[in-house]
């Protein structure tokens, strides 16, 4: 578990019932990063939904990602007034492009954002890094 998440008062977690995202979060308990695929038109769907956004198929397949990708963009949040995040600053929030061609919002953990040698850059390769939080595991990433 990464050091930057140990002193949280109460982490914001997904809430249920929420039928679109429940299968995604259920799989995180097994440390599986899942995304949806339309077999009819070969479109990747993310975030989870119950319909293909390209064709009219409403029966999507769940696939498991390798958990490998690259940072599309990121920011170091140095000020937050949210009670669950204000003590976590500075933390690195990012869009990560997974190799399976879906983009997700996440954190880059186990990195000092103020160390110029850290390797934290746009385009850097990353690997999923699970943060266990009871009912779910949060898919953060660390530099590969």
């Amino acid at each position: 578990m990464s050091a930057d998440t140990t002193h949280e008062p109460r982490r914001v977690l997904p809430r249920f019932p929420e039928l679109d995202t429940e299968p995604f979060w259920e799989a995180t308990k097994e440390h599986q990063l899942r995304y949806q695929f339309c077999e009819q038109c070969e479109t990747v769907i993310f975030y989870p939904r119950a319909h293909c956004t390209k064709c009219t198929n409403t029966d999507l397949t769940w696939r498991t990602s390798s958990g490998e990708g690259a940072i599309y963009t990121y920011s170091v949040i140095r000020r937050s007034q949210h009670p669950s995040f204000m003590d976590m600053v500075p933390y690195v929030i990012a869009w990560v492009d997974l190799d399976e061609t879906f983009r997700m919002l996440t954190h880059i953990v186990d990195v000092d954002p103020d160390d110029p040698e850290s390797g934290l850059t746009i385009g850097a390769r990353v690997q999923v890094h699970w943060i266990d939080r009871g009912q779910v595991s949060l898919p953060a990433f660390h530099l590969a």
Binding site: F16, E18, D20, W25, P48, T73, Y74, S75, L105
Partner: peptide
């Protein structure tokens, strides 16, 4: 309000309005 698929995938990462525009600015 009640959860939706977007809030359920993104709120847990603590984005702020500033960080949203900052991520955009960085790219």
């Amino acid at each position: 309000g009640p959860p939706n698929p977007i809030s359920n995938m993104e709120d847990c990462w603590g984005p702020t309005l500033v960080s949203d525009y900052a991520q955009f600015a960085h790219r």
